[in-house]
Simulated assay, not measured.
Amino acid sequence: MDEQFGPEYLRPAQPDCPRCDCCTAVLCEKGRNSVLRCGGHVSDGLRDTVRGCPCSAETTKRTAAWRVAQVRVTRLARELPLGLEAEGLLRLLVDGKTGEAAEKPDELVTELKLRGLAQVVHGMPAITALGHTYLHARADVRGWTAVQITDIDKQARTATVAVPSWRPDEQVTVLLDQVLSDSQVDIDSLHGRWLVAEANSLAEDADRLVLTQFRVSPPMPPIRTGGTE
């Protein structure tokens, strides 16, 4: 009988990802659902090749890296905001005043670039999508609200969350590890659990709704049904 797995055997090639020209479909599926992105799932020799893969980038909506960045920038805006000059520069960029913004000190642009809030395009500073997220977070009304974990995807490391104060009939996806880390609730008792989180409940859509600081809901007082004690 012929040996099928001898020295000439080659592993079947994995199909290329249809959305990029640097990865396989399997790699991008992993990268999309991982904060390590595609670069965190290849050998050192291939890391530079896939480093800029758009399928797992924080600039691509609904990737794990994007979800992490939304939370990071929102918390930055609320808990440790930029200085007045840096934030003022960001507002010039959102208003399209690039000429006035270009006259600001280079270190301000550098600060915004390091945080992912701005970039340089054709030699001129420009606001990024994360820069808009930052300004939204500065302006949004945020508050504590009850949320329910309605589903868990352990493979994709995501959780589906109902936010009644936002839209009673619509749910959003968040990173499972964010919920676990924030709330310290065991994963096996998370499904169906009611928690509280900080949210911008007036958000116009699911991509603008950012949930942060998941906490165990405090016990509710008993509901009285009538009568006197």
Rank of each mutant, 00 (worst) to 15 (best):
D16F: 05
D16Y: 08
D16N: 11
D16Q: 13
D16A: 14
C17K: 01
R19D: 15
C20S: 13
C20G: 12
C20L: 13
D21S: 15
T24R: 13
V26H: 09
V26K: 12
E29N: 14
E29D: 12
E29R: 12
K30L: 15
K30N: 07
K30Q: 15
G31A: 01
S34C: 07
S34P: 05
V35T: 14
V35Y: 01
L36V: 10
R37Q: 10
R37W: 01
C38M: 08
C38V: 06
C38F: 04
G39D: 01
G40Q: 05
V42P: 00
S43P: 01
S43E: 06
G45L: 11
L46M: 12
L46F: 09
T49D: 12
T49S: 12
T49K: 13
V50K: 03
V50A: 02
R51N: 13
G52A: 11
G52T: 12
C55L: 08
C55F: 10
A57K: 03
A57D: 11
A57L: 06
E58F: 03
T59R: 04
T59K: 03
T60C: 09
K61D: 14
K61N: 10
K61F: 14
R62K: 10
R62H: 10
A64D: 02
A65T: 00
A65G: 02
W66F: 07
W66M: 00
W66V: 02
W66Q: 04
R67W: 09
R67I: 10
R67H: 08
V68G: 00
V68S: 05
A69D: 11
Q70T: 04
Q70H: 08
R72Y: 01
V73G: 03
T74R: 13
R75S: 07
L76P: 07
L76T: 02
L76Y: 04
A77P: 10
A77V: 09
A77T: 12
R78L: 11
R78Y: 07
R78T: 10
L80M: 14
P81W: 04
L82C: 08
L82I: 07
G83M: 04
G83Y: 09
G83H: 10
L84G: 05
A86D: 06
E87T: 11
E87S: 08
G88K: 01
G88R: 06
G88S: 08
L89I: 03
L89N: 00
L89K: 00
L90Y: 06
L90I: 09
L90M: 11
L90S: 02
R91S: 10
R91E: 15
R91N: 13
R91G: 08
R91P: 09
R91H: 10
L92Q: 14
L93Q: 05
V94P: 03
D95F: 01
D95C: 05
D95Q: 12
D95N: 08
K97W: 03
T98W: 01
T98I: 05
G99E: 15
E100A: 15
E100G: 03
A101P: 11
A101E: 04
E103P: 01
K104D: 00
P105F: 08
D106M: 06
E107W: 14
L108H: 03
L108I: 07
V109T: 15
T110P: 06
E111I: 13
E111N: 08
L112H: 04
K113H: 11
L114I: 04
L114V: 04
L114D: 11
R115A: 07
